[in-house]
Design a protein around this nucleic acid. Structure first.
Length: 485
RNA sequence: CGGGCGGUAGCGCAGUCUGGCAGCGCGCCUGCUUUGGGAGCAGGAGAUCGCGAGUUCGAAUCUCGCCCGCCCGACCA
């Protein structure tokens, strides 16, 4: 038996098709993920949103621990002198650095302190103490922390003046090992995005124009949002010896020759939560992947009388422990609302499965299960309910990924020329894949001609399918272009 | 940072032009009736009108400065 409701009217929520940006802000606030604060560009992350971050943290932290990475904590404040040592890095970051210039009764400081926008400089400075010999390498460090970047235009989760992230910083005895590290972490990010967030990504190289300031090369994962814009969801950088030279992090190699370390850094931020919202949501609100959903299954009890209330409560108590024992994050919503209000509330909050339990279910020994993705209603016997729901959640996770993948396929075009590309972005969004010669000039021309379409990333193993879309010289790479967040 | 718009009860807004009792809807509290897709009735609480100066007998309303947000550009995870 299948019942579907298609009343697309949702109170107080802008429709996605009407105004995607407003829809996004509405969902983030009404689903209680985050909110504005009196502080310019800074948000408050509410428990429901923070729980998503905790899920992401747990997943990623487990991955890096499995490869021997260790968590550290480094200072929030970085003396100006230290900050200024790597020229390209300084140039890239100074426009958005916040400085502490004055402190309490001490008054004006002799030297300004940067509030970290990222920690390469302070970590490099400190790590030289701990790295003396090739036997000390590799040093695989990570920290979970906040950073501040003085952004002019902010949006909840996607771009705020302060945000949370993890930043990994690793030190190696040779280039090959560092380059391998960058790829290992990029693969972790792919797994985090695809297996946990159910967000299909392109993992690949950023162009020289788009790379991190101070990096030799940068790789990223990029995901498509439902408005057709791409989101850079995490980055992994190879620094060669750029930072170790600037901060004098060196070691004695096997021949007792002093050598600068080869370093990497990589980061993923609370922006991923914004990605989750925009990759999966619909006109009813959030849709959360079960593996990260703070509540995976919500139970809505239905009753009129005290007696029915007792019956329903007893019935739920019969299988609730078993469902929890199956490792399912279950919430029974006994709040003093009517069932319809609860349905809407939990759909807004993106809970994957809802169980409706009333006297009909009690009598039949069933629950009514409603899927957040399809919103179809089915009856499920309570026998081995934990096992059944686990299976349902796995299927949901897969279906969510599949839907996002199909959406991306439907929104990826291939073009041969700049004219075609410009024409495409006049009416459509999504990715456009095109052959490219590898020159920054040609990349810049795409950006100019389209008013802001940027290169996303590329897979160097994929050969260009024709001549460069701009200059007509032999293509080197097949690269994705998109409008981006 | 440039251009435009906005800030009045928890949320969404009217009132501002033309100065004169602080309003509406939703939400919230209490009670009763309700409860399978956002309940009904009755009563009630809640606002230094973003902040600070100024003009005026009198300012949500006029003037100046500042803060915050939104949209469009340039910059960025």
């Amino acid at each position: 038996m299948t019942e579907t409701y298609d009343d697309s009217f949702v109170k107080e929520l802008t429709r996605m098709s009407d105004d995607f940006d407003r829809w996004y802000t509405d969902v983030v606030r009404k689903a209680e993920l985050a909110d504005y604060t009196p502080v310019r560009g800074c948000m408050v992350i509410r428990p429901y949103g923070y729980a998503l971050w905790e899920g992401i943290q747990r997943a990623f932290d487990d991955m890096i621990k499995s490869s021997g990475h260790e968590n550290w904590y480094f200072p929030l404040l970085i003396p100006e002198e230290l900050f200024m040592k790597e020229a390209e890095h300084v140039e890239g970051f100074t426009p958005e650095v916040a400085w502490v210039t004055e402190a309490g009764s001490h008054g004006k400081l002799d030297q300004r302190l940067a509030i970290r926008p990222t920690s390469e400089t302070i970590i490099g400075t400190l790590m030289r103490r701990y790295v003396q010999s090739h036997r000390d390498l590799p040093k695989l460090t990570n920290q979970w922390c906040n950073v501040v970047r003085w952004e002019l235009r902010t949006r909840l989760f996607l771009r705020t003046a302060e945000f949370l992230w993890q930043e990994g910083h690793t030190f190696h005895a040779n280039a090959a090992e560092a380059i391998e590290e960058v790829d290992r972490i990029l693969e972790y990010y792919r797994v985090l995005a695809e297996d946990w967030c159910a967000m299909p990504v392109f993992a690949g190289w950023k162009t020289a124009t788009e790379k991190f300031p101070g990096a030799v090369h940068t790789k990223s994962i990029e995901a498509l949002m439902r408005d057709g814009l791409t989101l850079q969801a995490a980055t992994s950088h190879y620094f060669g010896q750029n930072f170790s030279r600037a901060y004098d992090v060196s070691f004695a190699n096997r021949e007792n020759v002093r050598e600068f370390c080869y370093t990497t850094s990589w980061g993923a931020t609370t922006r991923l939560i914004g990605g989750l919202v925009m990759a999966h949501g619909d006109d009813f609100g959030l849709i959360l992947p079960p593996k990260l959903a703070p509540v995976q299954v919500v139970v809505v009890p239905i009753y009129r009388t005290d007696e029915a209330h007792r019956e329903v409560a007893d019935f739920i108590a019969g299988w609730e422990p078993e469902v929890r024992a199956a490792g399912i994050r279950l919430k029974v919503d006994w709040s003093d609302e009517r069932p319809g209000a609860k349905y809407n509330q939990w759909e807004l909050k993106g809970v994957p499965l809802r169980l409706e339990v009333g006297s009909r279910e009690v009598a039949a020994g069933e629950v009514r299960v409603v899927d957040r993705l399809t919103r179809e209603k089915r009856q499920l016997g309570v026998n081995a309910l934990g096992e059944q729901l686990s299976a349902e959640l796995s299927a949901f996770q897969a279906a969510l990924y599949q839907r996002a993948l199909e959406f991306r396929q439907a929104n990826t075009a291939v073009v041969k020329s700049l004219a075609e590309l410009v024409e495409h972005f006049r009416t459509r969004a999504g990715y456009v894949s095109a052959p490219w010669c590898g020159e920054a000039d040609c990349e810049a021309k795409v950006r100019e001609a389209t008013g802001g379409v940027k290169s996303s990333n590329y897979d160097p193993d994929r050969k260009a399918e024709g001549e460069c879309l701009v200059c007509g010289r032999p293509g080197r790479y097949q690269i994705n272009f998109a409008r981006s967040y």
